[in-house]
Design a protein around this nucleic acid. Structure first.
Lengths: 247, 247
DNA sequence: GTTTCCACTTGATCTCGGTCAAAGCAACTG
DNA sequence: CAGTTGCTTTGACCGAGATCAAGTGGAAAC
């Protein structure tokens, strides 16, 4: 088996995700050490992987499918606080309990590491702590960008923001460009989108219909989305920080 | 000068914050190394410390006063995405540019470290990367808790949530308990509160008046808040995760 | 002392998105 | 095949919060 150690050389024979998620810049020895504590888990759509408050026995990354981090109030109001797409990392090294539910939104495969030995590695391997810090800062930036969406954007802008995020992620995973028309399958139900956007599912449905009527997006069936022009979608999102994605 | 190295022994002669923020568990040598690259900066209320997109030349922590992280859309809509109280850390090791504005909400003193040498220390000192990772995870948790507030709570619940967060922070900084009545000064204008909560300042004002009328809080002047019973405030906040603060 | 300013309050009205209800539609099931 | 189930759409109505507009009160400035 060939071990690839740099961020660019993503992927080894059996786990295309792992290196990218936690091992960029690792040395060969470290990868072999990780190999020893690695295992896979599958989940069905709708299954809760970790309940809020539960002890977490593992960390890991999403191989395929989608997971979400959700918080729920006693009366049932639900807010999704994170969307985990393939290659995203799950887990809080150094934390005993999960602060929110982790739910498999679609069928899901994860590549896991048992927590205790993983934390030992962090303690002894400076690279990994630094890499995790970098990843956590990325998550923090994403969470804060989403706070702007939740706090200040209109329903239409929220939908456009979500669609452009999914389009970007889809493009970067499948190494597609963002210049021409973009097509992808929505991995979320209307209800899941509503929970992410702080809306009701009816409003989500109405706004998607409106964007379709206004030619900003096209729909094939309920889930397959075509974006004729990414720029006009970003306009709708009110997004100044298009982050040079369209250069 | 006495150097205090553990988390409990917060504070040295001239910088009560620094150790707590970045040096928990540090060795004496490291503290002296930090000492060499440390300096103070003062800002006036309303002053922008770092503009979104600017290169960041330093990291540091708040000594006194309040700073906020804000994002703004072209049309002026503003969302505060973070509230920095004394002892909070500012900066993204490893990042060139700031992703949002950092603004002094009140007069402010910060204890800064020049970024380049600080990052060198991170690279060579495993403790610090781990400590920063822990702090960043805390910030991430706070940001995600706030996403629930922004996405799903009513105006009244939002106000109650903000007040209880400030009350908690104030109590922990000033080593007060949370069992009896609690009193503190609001460090934010109505407008700043609105920007944090995703509301307008008029709604903030109305809801504060309503909470006052319903005896959940008392006001002396515009800013001095008295909370007769923390439990009823948390009830208003709809907060199941009172985090055992009232045990 | 009164003027100005700023943060705040209060009121009247409007609107976006929530709520409630019905119905469409594709995929299964027996 | 009819019947169920889950996801989605659409319509009618309503209300929380936004918007627009005065007005209050206290502290600094002249």
């Amino acid at each position: 088996m060939t071990l690839k150690a740099s961020y660019e050389h993503v992927g080894c024979d059996d786990c295309p995700i792992r290196h990218r998620a936690v091992c960029a810049h690792c040395e060969k020895d470290e990868l072999e050490e990780l190999e020893a504590i690695k295992y896979y888990r599958s989940f069905e759509a709708g299954q809760t992987i970790i309940w809020s408050g539960d002890p977490m026995s593992f960390v890991g990354s999403v191989v395929s499918g989608i997971a979400s981090l959700t918080q729920t109030m006693e009366d049932g109001r639900t807010q999704m606080v994170g969307l985990l797409l393939p290659s995203d990392f799950v887990g809080r090294p150094g934390r005993e309990a999960a602060p929110y539910d982790v739910v498999a939104t679609t069928d899901l495969v994860m590549c896991c590491f048992r927590r205790a030995p993983f934390e030992e590695m962090i303690a002894t391997t400076p690279h990994i702590a630094q890499r995790l810090l970098e990843m956590t800062l990325d998550e923090l930036d994403a969470a804060r960008e989403w706070m702007l969406v939740l706090g200040r954007k209109t329903a239409r802008e929220k939908i456009a923001s979500l669609l452009s995020i999914i389009a970007r992620r889809d493009a970067s995973v499948n190494r597609k460009g963002l210049s021409g028309p973009i097509a992808f399958d929505l991995p979320l139900t209307r209800e899941a989108m509503a929970d992410y956007l702080g809306l009701t599912l009816e409003t989500v449905s109405r706004q998607i219909s409106a964007l379709k009527k206004d030619q900003v997006i096209q729909l094939e069936g309920k889930r397959h989305v075509i974006i004729p022009d990414m720029r006009s979608l970003l306009d709708e999102a009110g997004d100044d920080s298009d982050g040079g994605f369209l250069v």
